[in-house]
Simulated scan of single mutants.
Amino acid sequence: MGKILVIGAGGQLGQCLKTVANRRGIDEISFPAEQEANILNEEGLNILLQHEKPKYVINCAAYTAVDKAEDEVDLAKAVNEIGAGNLAEACKNSNATLIHVSTDFVFEGNEVKLLKEDDIANPINVYGVTKLAGEKLVESILPEHFIVRTSWLYSEYGNNFTKTMLKLGAERDELNIIADQIGTPTYAIDLANAIFDIIALESNAFGIYHYSNEGITSWYDFAKAIFDISKTDVKVNPIPGSAYPTKAIRPAFSVMDKSKIKNTFNITIPYWRDSLVECVNAINRN
């Protein structure tokens, strides 16, 4: 399999990769601290990769505060675009393959259809614009790349919708949740497994792939499922997105077609609700 280096190791997906690597007995893997692996520091990245000599680099570092990005445009661009380019350059210099994690938010999401990898990307917020620019930079610099777009990521680590709902559900009797944004929640542990599956095959089927859990839901139904599984007694009211205006516009429908990743790498993808049960159990254990 070769040595693996994880950039952005402290984040949600980085922590899930660490957990899954332990479970799978992957020991040729390193998770450098952020100061050692700052994607805005080109020289530092080159030194790190020359020293570690990884065969694969997984980039989990991203600016993901979707609403804040509307104000912090330069910072979002620096991390999501320039940082991705810096890492692609460093991988090129040390002959490493890059696995770069991207998002369903590169799409406008204004039609009810499954989104394929080659569909036209037309992001409607700063976060999506900067993530798409990062993808394009990676593609232009480094042929040996896998770009994995994912959606609605959650886990027992970091800050995410599932953990927020569990916290709010314990504090309140009633919650209003948006019901007209449709997508697929993705358990970051499942995504981590899929990334290691791709690496294990040592494939050179480079390019863009879509990965989320199976199924389709709304934020409202996702919240209902969280409360149902965790046996939390809270009233959930469906509301339209227009009743809860946010700084950044979200895609109304961003369900991705996963046929390509399943067929290319023979990956089995769990149904979103089954994975949610696993995650809620893990949170309860912690």
Rank of each mutant, 00 (worst) to 15 (best):
I47N: 08
L48H: 06
L48K: 06
L48G: 07
Q50T: 14
Q50C: 15
E52I: 12
K55A: 15
V57A: 04
V57W: 01
N59S: 03
C60M: 12
A61C: 12
A61E: 07
A62P: 03
Y63Q: 06
Y63A: 09
T64M: 11
T64I: 12
A65I: 09
A65C: 08
V66E: 06
V66H: 03
V66Q: 04
K68P: 06
A69F: 02
A69D: 06
A69W: 04
A69H: 04
E70S: 02
D71K: 12
E72A: 10
L75S: 11
A76Y: 07
A76T: 08
K77G: 11
V79A: 10
E81G: 11
E81I: 10
G83I: 05
A84V: 09
G85P: 05
N86T: 09
N86I: 00
A88Q: 07
A88K: 07
A88C: 01
A90L: 00
K92Q: 12
K92A: 11
N93D: 14
S94C: 15
A96D: 03
T97H: 13
L98I: 08
L98A: 01
L98W: 00
V101D: 03
S102T: 01
S102N: 06
T103R: 05
T103H: 02
D104R: 05
V106F: 04
F107N: 01
G109D: 01
N110C: 00
V112L: 13
K113N: 04
K113D: 04
K113Q: 04
L114K: 08
L114Q: 03
L115H: 00
L115F: 04
K116Y: 07
K116W: 09
E117R: 10
D119S: 08
A121I: 05
A121P: 02
N122P: 09
N122R: 15
P123F: 01
P123H: 04
I124C: 01
N125S: 07
V126Y: 06
